[in-house]
Design a binder for these strands. Sequence first.
DNA 1: TCACCTTTGAAGGTC
DNA 2: GACCTTCAAAGGTGA
Length: 474
Amino acid sequence: MPQLNGGGGDDLGANDELISFKDEGEQEEKISENSSAERDLADVKSSLVNESETNQNSSSDSEAERRPPPRSESFRDKSRESLEEAAKRQDGGLFKGPPYPGYPFIMIPDLTSPYLPNGSLSPTARTLHIQSGSTHYSAYKTIEHQIAIQYLQMKWPLLDVQAGSLQSRQALKDARSPSPAHIVSNKVPVVQHPHHVHPLTPLITYSNEHFTPGNPPPHLPADVDPKTGIPRPPHPPDISPYYPLSPGTVGQIPHPLGWLVPQQGQPVYPITTGGFRHPYPTALTVNASMSSFLSSRFPPHMVPPHHTLHTTGIPHPAIVTPTVKQESSQSDVASLHSSKHQDSKKEEEKKKPHIKKPLNAFMLYMKEMRAKVVAECTLKESAAINQILGRRWHALSREEQAKYYELARKERQLHMQLYPGWSARDNYVGGYGKKKKRKRDKQPGETNDLSAPKKCRARFGLDQQNNWCGPCSL
DNA sequence: TCACCTTTGAAGGTC
DNA sequence: GACCTTCAAAGGTGA
């Protein structure tokens, strides 16, 4: 399988990415999850039913010989079969584009990726970005917009602001005006509440809770979150909901760089000099190409500071300040009331902000697809949803998976640039070898007797004959 | 209130 | 190198 890194020397990507598909033979996976929801669910349902049948059969020794192969292989085979069958049904003509119409990566390693192995933009890509930026320059009135767009394009090539999409450009231009487009968007219906949308990156959602939504201007139509009831700002239709144009997108925040600037009533991120706060503080600093580009293209006062912002104590949204969650009140209060400032300083130093791990490909996929699965299925239990997502993940074509691997690779790259000294071990509670919590004690390959779909079936009433859960169609 | 469940992948440690 | 462990997201569930 294609090495995503393409031998480009980038060791950030996992070498074994997509290798699992080798085990699946040469299946012609022309099916994507973009197949109709019904068909997709039917496939999932079929797989789950087969699995359940397998489990049922496993209880009978007399049928042991007729039992399908081990579960994992069984699933893969079944998955392949179901895929092939589905491919036939679809007559090969229903392949719709990837969920990111504007996605510029054609997953040919190092041929189209605008990033050099070292993570910086290649000259060609940079040129493209600049050119596209020029195009947008005519469309936007303010230079602030230009900075925002350029930065978005550089950091998140998925963002369809440069795809020449008149719709997207119009959407951006009219971001302040109400548009129902996001409602009818055919994209993955992950219209997350800003509270759940990472403000920095389209896909990583390190610490969404830092960005509680502000009150939208009265003139804006409030897209009310059905769950929370909190109004959401309209979202540009062609922009993946993961992209943080905003909690508040453009329209909600007066400042054109509002997505970079703390919203009112959000003291989490202190505003630095000039009020500029960047969600990925060092991203602009680290990326020399972008930095020089900004410096040369915009007046100094428009260019974000180049010094190490993140070292100044400005938390990245990936950072979950311990004081917010766990170690909060007690020690803080103690430090406040303590006359020993030095001790409190030491304590504060010990309280290193929790920098979350960058999301891997599957996590990125889950974040995108979860809402869709939840919408299609009555299930809301994450364990069950994750099982479905896991199956869908395996059902994805290589190309589609490659997108997420590529995204994950870039996220890791960016994360590593932002936090050079960070290690995944930093997040280990109690250090390696000391379990934070007890998880399931099962042998590799062993599954719990009560899988999530089974739980679902048990909960909603399993049709034992069909082994089918009516309410969720699984 | 919080661990658990459940998924895959990445990372780090151990042997 | 193989194997193991932990964590990343998510939200319902149960202790």
